[in-house]
Amino acid sequence: MTKKKNRPGRIDRKLARWGLIFVAPSIAFFSVFSFYPIGMAFYTSLFKKNLLSLKRPDFIGLKNYIYLFGSSDFWNSVEATFVFALGTFLPLLIASLMLAAFIMSISKARRFFQMAYYSPAVISSVVSAAIWLLIFDPRGLGNQWVNAILQTPGIDNRWLADSTMVRLSTMIVYFWKYIGYFVIIFISGLANIPRSMYEAAEIDGATGWAVFWKITFPLLKPTVVLVSIMSMLQCLKTFSTQYLFTQSGAPQGPINVITLNIYNTGIRDFRIGRASAMSIILFSIMLFFTWLQFRTSKSDEVNY
């Protein structure tokens, strides 16, 4: 905006009106499809409400929440969600940071490696789950490869049957699908670090490892924090893989993540009130992580 006198003139008022006209459709949209439903979810969570029943839902205050906090099924979902989120995002973070640093350290075929890692992200999550469903078949590639590496011919690892393995299987699918995505984020983070920083270190005689820990990593910290929170939030919302696996006969308990539980409670069992209470808890968890991101990124401003 060019500097003008602070007195609002006719033209300024006209322009302000146009500004409102441009944003009005979105305001209407977000009110109806974001704010109203989240308010509604909170409101419904205070009622005992069944989707099919025609009688007025009973107001039961916080009883849905009290029920959930006392329900082993819900705690199982919380556990399944956090096991999945931590078990996916930590390896994802470490591997993608390592691969990005490796790619930046070589001079040839950078583009090739980026594209190759990114390729699983191109296909949809349902398709990836379907592919891995076959790989995890008892006679599938999963067993063949693991047995070839560990030199244990003929062992079935029960990828989709054992309760620990089925968790690992969902993590592998997610890791596979998102690794390239985070590699690319880290590469653009690394590319933002000024060359002069490295040249200065070179002159001071710093070696590869020291350069990474003393220069690259601290400067990359904002990206690391961002990627951690983003992938954590992404993992907390996981649904497709778990849904497709359970639909195809995998045991539900170990991978009954909160989203799957909300879906089953609300849509399959019609307990709208209880499902809404779960939604609000999920929302609060995610809100907490978002707040954490804002807080950490505020205190970690980096100056080159």
């Binding site: 439903p37 509604m40 919302k237 909300i262 609000i280 978002t290």
Partner: peptide, 14 residues
């Protein structure tokens, strides 16, 4: 910050 999963049921009702 509002995950779709948290609002899907009210959205479905609407």
């Amino acid at each position: 910050m509002i995950p779709f999963e948290a609002i899907m049921i009210p959205l479905y009702l609407v």
